[in-house]
Amino acid sequence: MIVTATVGQQAQAAARASDVWKVYGSGEAQVIALRGVSAEFERGRFTAIMGPSGSGKSTLMHCLAGLDSVTRGTVMIGDTTVTGLGDAGLTKLRRDKVGFIFQQFNLLPTLTAQENILLPLSIAGRKPDPAWYDTVIDTVGLRERLGHRPAQLSGGQQQRVACARALVARPEVIFADEPTGNLDSRSGAEVLNFLRNSVREHGQTIVMVTHDPTAAAYADRVVFLADGEIVSELIEPTADTVLDTMKKLDAPAEVGN
C-alpha cells in the first residue's frame, strides 16, 4: 500500500516533496533510501516523520532541506524549487527560509549562547526583531544563560539554544533531526513543549524526524516511513496511537497491501 500524504491545500504547503527518489551508490552497493516519496508539509503545523531506523527519515529531511540532492523528483520550500539550485542558491535558501536543529553539535563552542542564537541573522547581515527576539528568549527560558558558552550548558539547554537559533530568524520551515535523541526524558519534554508552543502560538512550521513515539505525539501529524516509502500517517496523534501504528508496520503481514 502506498499512501500519499495529501493533508492540507497546496497554497499552504511550507515544504513539498513530489515523487522523490534517492539512490546511494550503484551496482552491488546500491541503496534506495527513498522510493517515490510525495508529501506536503502545511504551514503552521508541527509534522513528525517516524519510522524504524534506516527507513529513510533523515534522508527525506536532508532532501527537503536542500542539504542533499534528490535522484529524481522535485522538492519545494514555499514557492522556491529546491531541486536544481546551486551552492549559492542553496545557501540563500538556508539563510532565508530554513532553520535546522540537529541531534547534537548544534552550537559553535567559541560563541556564547546569545551569539549562537543570533549567528544566522548576523551571517545574513540582518538585525533581529527585538520584540520577537525577547519572545523567543523568554519562551526558551534562557535569559540568565545568554552569556554562557555551550560547554557551560547542559545538553537540554544546548538544544533549547539551538531551537531559539532556528526560531529567531522566523524561517519558512524548521527541520529537526532527532532533536531529543541525546536528551533525558525531562529535558526532551521541555524541548518538545517549546517546539509545539512555537507552532501553536507563533505559527512556525516544523518538520521533525524522530523514532520516539512519545516525541511524535507532540506533533499535529505523523508521517510513517518504511523502506523509503510513506506507509501511513496519523492526525492528532497520541503516544498510544503512534505506538500502535508502529507495531502494525513492524508486522510485515499487515503492511504492503
Binding site: A88, K92, R94, R95, G99, F105, P109, L119, P120, I123
Partner: peptide, 16 residues
C-alpha cells in the same frame, strides 16, 4: 568539519 558544516547549514557562504 562538523562545525563548518553547521555554519554552512545555517547560511554561511563559501566566500565567507
Amino acid at each position: 568539519t562538523r562545525e563548518l558544516g553547521l555554519l554552512r547549514a545555517i547560511g554561511l557562504r563559501r566566500a565567507q
